[in-house]
Design a binder for these strands. Structure first.
Length: 572
RNA sequence: GUGCCCGUAGCUCAAUCGGAUAGAGCACCAGCCUUCUAAGCUGGGGGUUACAGGUUCGAUUCCUGUCGGGCACACCA
């Protein structure tokens, strides 16, 4: 077997291979239905049902007025031969159960080892560009756990989409203009003058967190801060509110950048809301919207008739005081994304911003520049509830009481924090129990997975041979049920990446890795690897080396490290 | 009141565009280290998938309604 043959081996993309076969069978048996019925194959949940199942016969039964089991037999008869298929059975109401030939399954080990870090990557994106905007926190305070969820989900999404063949640009949008920034500036100014939040003079919408005091202190001490390559030196002049605002924003951006770096997240592009005003893009969009005929003047304000595009009421664009509401620069920003050539854009954000979706899309539709209706796409994550000492910690920037991302990284660790925040479906509420994550770190799933990887590395190190040559091993000895499970699990990996990318659901990676680790641990406990028989030894080592490769690739999709050693912790 | 999200084992969560007997972890019980890392493994109990209808060969999944939870409903962002 040569490397080039392994790359295109059907077992590396087995579902598509089977789907092709069944499509041909369908053409032969029922050409008139071949167009309406795309062939769907699914993994069987139980081993007695084989490895894959096809439900085509049951779907065709009604329109063709034939019994599903007859149709199943006809499809099987028309199926082109393949070395991948070991056995076919008709079961239940008309399922066609497919058993993959053991010899074909064994090929996946060599294929995975040869592909290395690229194993599992697919090409559904075909190199097309795609932009993901995430985090996009206001520069008015440190990142909290909610931003952490957005950061983890968004970054993992980017990694998954890259692995699925998309060329991904990561973007962060700063709302560095508007009322919240003015509140920030005022809060820092008050702190500079020695006024604290418990003072009656403190405004209701002022920021109360201790970090405001830190900003004020740094400003008075004439410190320098850097964000996005720009260095700002504080003047210390409390009466200069422009300088104060610039310093405060840069200070907080620097802090956010440091937190993101500690969370192993890197953005390609930072966009500033303020730039949309200074470059005239906001005005340009307003003019275009007025010209589109979807606006009207009422009560001294300018309105956009968003109800033309599915909103439940119209929205104000320009307030009677002449300033714009927040969604106007948002529309300008998204028009800019479109003009930069991103025909696919995904915005990952907290569900508390879901009402913006309709408005932004309505504004873009009103511009009538060819943007599709469902553009951009959104992935919304639900709120994170934080438990500390068994009690819910209320997240409120203004009250200054919340758990920062930095706290979590310091207390729980980057790996575990990323895993916990990314390992849940984003549409469900997440409970993050800090004490549990800290005190039970020995039972943390991320350690379970990393431990499986470290165990393999340890065995390979004790063997001391050349891992790079293992792909040439004779795999025919891999016949135990443990080995079959692992082979199938490896075969599933490319399909997993395809599904996770299609569903924009990176949490699937986390669950897969837990299952893979469980299979590995069972195998490890039941099997010796460094045995006398050279052929068996090499086959088993090749298998676990392939498993380690998949775990490393999978952990990388989550941004979690794959250590080669685990140092014991705790009292176990 | 309106819109969006959610409701699965005691707890935290899965379930691949509707598939066959709904799965893991934690917690609880009983076992496994003179052998490659016990942060591990093996076995056990635990369910009317909130509730009621509907669609069909088949529903945790889709539709309608009810109940419960979260979020959003400004000329705030």
């Amino acid at each position: 077997m040569r490397i080039s043959n392994l790359k295109n081996h059907p077992v590396s993309n087995i579902k598509n291979h089977l789907a092709d076969l069944f499509t041909q069978a369908l053409q032969a048996v029922a050409p008139e239905h071949a167009i309406q019925h795309a062939v769907v194959l699914e993994r069987s949940k139980q081993t007695q049902h084989g490895d894959y199942a096809c439900n085509l016969a049951m779907q065709l039964a009604k329109p063709m007025r034939r019994s599903p089991r007859d149709l199943a037999q006809a499809l099987i008869n028309a199926l082109p031969p393949s070395t991948v298929i070991g056995k076919l059975e008709i079961a239940g109401a008309g399922f066609i159960n497919i058993f993959i030939a053991v010899a074909a399954k064994q090929q996946i080990v060599s294929a995975a080892l040869c592909a290395g870090d690229k194993f599992g990557h697919v090409d559904v994106g075909a190199g097309r560009t795609l932009q993901v905007e995430f985090v996009s926190a206001n520069p008015t305070g440190p990142l909290h756990i909610g931003h952490g969820r957005g950061a983890a989900v968004g970054d993992c999404l980017c990694r998954v989409l890259s692995a699925a063949g998309w060329r991904v640009t990561r973007e962060f949008y700063y709302n560095d203009a508007g009322a919240q920034i003015e509140n920030l500036t005022l809060s820092v100014e008050l702190r500079c003058n020695g006024i604290t939040p418990d003072n009656v003079a403190w405004p209701d919408n002022g920021y109360r967190g201790d970090y405001i005091m830190d900003v004020a202190r740094a400003y008075l001490a004439r410190e320098a801060v850097v964000a996005d390559g720009k260095r700002i030196q504080a003047s210390g002049d409390v009466t200069d509110s422009v300088a104060l605002q610039q310093f405060a924003v840069t200070y907080l951006r620097q802090e956010q950048d440091e937190d993101l770096q500690a969370f192993r997240i890197k953005f390609d592009v930072f966009s500033l809301e303020s730039a949309l005003y200074t470059t005239g893009r906001v005005e340009e969009v307003v003019s275009a919207l007025v010209a589109s005929g979807h606006t009207y003047q009422q009560d001294d304000a300018l309105w956009l008739r968003t109800t033309d595009f599915g909103d439940d009421k119209d929205r104000v664009m320009r307030k009677s005081d002449g300033s714009y509401t927040y969604f106007v620069p948002d529309v300008a920003y998204h028009l800019d994304k479109w003009r930069r050539g991103f025909t696919r854009v995904i915005n990952e954000q907290g569900a508390d911003h879901h009402s913006t979706i309709t408005r932004v899309r309505a504004g873009l539709q009103a511009l009538n520049v060819g943007i599709p209706q469902g553009w951009p796409e959104y992935v919304l994550h639900q709120m994170v509830t934080v438990l500390r000492n068994g009690e819910e910690v209320k997240i409120s920037k203004r009250a200054g009481s919340y758990v920062t991302l930095r706290d979590l990284i310091d207390e729980v660790g980057c790996d575990a924090t990323r895993y916990f925040l990314a390992a849940r479906h984003s549409s469900t509420h997440l409970v993050f129990d800090i004490d549990l994550a800290k005190s039970q770190s020995n039972e943390n799933p991320v350690y379970y997975i990393q431990y499986a990887h470290a165990r393999i590395c340890s065995v390979l190190a004790q063997w001391g041979g050349e891992v790079a040559n293992l792909w040439q091993a004779d795999m025919s000895a891999l016949n135990s049920s443990y080995e079959q499970n692992l082979l199938q699990r490896i075969i599933d990996f490319p399909q997993l990446i395809e599904n996770a990318a299609a569903d924009l659901a990176p949490h699937l990676i986390a669950f897969y890795l837990k299952d893979l680790a469980a299979d590995l641990h069972s195998y490890y406990n039941a099997t010796r690897f460094l045995v006398e028989d050279e052929s068996i030894k090499r086959a088993r080592l090749a298998l676990i080396a392939a498993v380690a490769q998949v775990m490393k690739n999978g952990l990388d999709l989550l941004g979690v490290s794959a250590p080669e050693k685990m140092s014991h912790k705790g009292t176990m």
